[in-house]
Nucleic acid binder design. Structure first.
Ligand SMILES: [Mn+2]
Ligand SMILES: [Mn+2]
Ligand SMILES: [Zn+2]
Ligand SMILES: [Zn+2]
Lengths: 126, 126
DNA sequence: GTCATAATCAGACTTATTCTAAATGACGAA
DNA sequence: TTCGTCATTTAGAATAAGTCTGATTATGAC
């Protein structure tokens, strides 16, 4: 009793979408495709999938969490005009990790990057 | 009509505190020091001070925003055990900015880092 | 089929933040 | 000083994301 139909449905929406959807986005998508799922189940599924390491939760300054089915290490960049959240695949150099460890005395578990700026599309418009 | 007494009071709390307080922390501090300010005013002041570039708002994954009077460019590191938020002064190498610009096609305005791990104090305890 | 357990559901609740509408206060002009 | 204006403050209502609850519905081992 693990990957129930509802959980799979939520997972599929995230897999299929290219844009890091929020819980509300997922809800809407499921509604539109004729499935009725409760909000509680969507949030429970998101938590289940996150624990199962099938997705991860992104907390990017904005109010609502977004969800990502891409599990390889990567970061994100947000357009300040249109709000889209794109992948940022540029890896952080190893020396940076070392420097953080040294400078802070922390046992560093992970380093998260969120860049902000104007996306290629928005750069064109005035 | 600008830096009113309430706004200054909020600012002073942030300046004096070493630990990136939340709105609620600030409220409590003001209460304890015998000033009565409304929540709305605290939030309005925080917005005013942020616009005035006297403080900045930190959105570190957690629920509540924290506020920082240190305006020089720097980042933050959060202890996963005790929750404290420390300064991370290690600057990101310039080549990283360039790489992000190149890899994403964005006009990059800023890059934010949040590291996570165990603080020196918590490393000692089992 | 029975029973235990896990998952779903609608809706109530919590918490951070924003909004609203009324009261207050500062300032300049008359 | 007295007014009028306009920014600020205030208490409390409203909003929005997310969590919790208790009842209901699968599931599947026996
Ligand atoms: Mn991603
Ligand atoms: Mn800081
Ligand atoms: Zn854009
Ligand atoms: Zn700690």
């Amino acid at each position: 009793m693990k990957l129930t139909p509802q959980r799979k449905a939520v997972f599929d929406v995230i897999l299929a979408s290219r844009d890091h959807p929020t819980a509300a986005d997922i809800m809407e998508h499921l509604r539109n495709s004729g499935q009725r799922v409760s909000y509680a189940t969507v949030y429970n599924s998101l938590k289940y999938l996150t624990n199962a390491q099938l997705i991860r939760e992104l907390k990017i300054g904005e109010s609502a969490s977004r969800y990502d089915a891409r599990m390889e290490a990567h970061h994100h960049i947000v357009c300040e005009k249109c709000g889209r959240v794109d992948e940022l695949l540029t890896p952080l150099p190893n020396e940076y990790w070392q420097a953080v460890t040294k400078d802070t005395g922390y046992d560093v578990h992970d380093i998260d990057i969120v860049a902000r700026g104007l996306c290629p599309d928005c750069r064109r418009q005035p």
